[in-house]
Computed example of a mutant assay.
Amino acid sequence: MEMRLENEFYGKIVIGHPGQTVNVAFDTAWSISWVLSSKCEIWKTVGCWFHNRYDHTKSSEWKKDNRPFIAEEGKYNMTGFYSYENISIAHSNVTAQSFVEMVDVPYTFIFNKVDGVLGLGLKIDDYDPFFYKLLRQKKIKDPLFSIYLNRDRQSNVGGNIMLGFVDEKHIHKTELKNKTIVPDKIKYLPVDAGQYWKFSMDR
């Protein structure tokens, strides 16, 4: 996972066969995954300039859906259409993942490093987010993901995202009286109902 200006964390995923590599933001607010499409015409949509664009005509694993997609983003709409495709991140992959091929994005997108979003949000309707699909296809054992954000400004590695496990090396450790060093216990809390990952705090 790379970092840009401490507010944009992104990494690479591979879509289709042969694989097409795109940079995505790992976004826990979006349930839907999307990438810029080759059908995003650069002569018409400035936001598509200087980005990797996914071309489904070059993949043997693409499946048509074609339902339209529209999302309001401030003064502008993001529009596209749904498709099905195999999506891989590192050693994890899902088959026939529903995602959006975005064909129109705001002009400000030209300043972003990412070509799309890997949606890690809560499942709120019939759409199966990437993480839920990983679990359902038994590609991961445990229903959890964890994110480590690196605060070292000298490093070009912004952090790691772990799907299905927690990496103990990133957990704060406490030294006991007998000089044994153990990772602190993780406190698990119930997630509040709603559109976003959130939990209640008493103070």
Rank of each mutant, 00 (worst) to 15 (best):
K12Y: 11
S92I: 01
A29M: 09
Y54V: 13
P143H: 02
R153Y: 05
F26K: 05
H91F: 02
S88W: 00
L176E: 13
S37N: 01
F131K: 02
V182C: 04
M78C: 07
G47Y: 03
I140A: 10
K141I: 04
K198V: 03
D202A: 03
V22W: 02
G16R: 09
G116H: 08
A193T: 11
P190G: 09
K58P: 00
K123H: 06
F69E: 10
Y82A: 08
S146N: 07
T21K: 11
N86Q: 10
I89T: 06
I186H: 07
M102Y: 01
D126S: 12
N86W: 02
A193N: 12
K138E: 15
H172K: 13
D115T: 01
A90L: 11
D55G: 04
V105Y: 05
R53V: 03
T57L: 13
D128S: 09
N93A: 14
K63G: 05
N23T: 03
L120G: 06
I147G: 04
D192T: 11
P106Q: 03
M78V: 15
V14C: 10
K173I: 00
T21M: 07
W30Q: 08
R151I: 01
K173N: 08
H51P: 04
S83A: 15
W197V: 06
S155G: 06
D202E: 13
V105E: 10
L189N: 11
T95H: 09
K198G: 08
T180K: 14
W43N: 13
N93Q: 15
L118A: 03
R136S: 14
W34R: 08
Q20M: 12
I110N: 05
W49S: 08
I171V: 14
V24S: 09
E41L: 10
A90H: 10
I181G: 03
S146C: 04
H170S: 04
Y82I: 03
V182W: 04
D152A: 01
V105F: 05
K139Q: 15
V157S: 12
D184N: 15
P143S: 05
L134N: 05
H91Y: 06
K133M: 11
G19V: 04
V157H: 08
G164W: 06
R151N: 14
F9E: 06
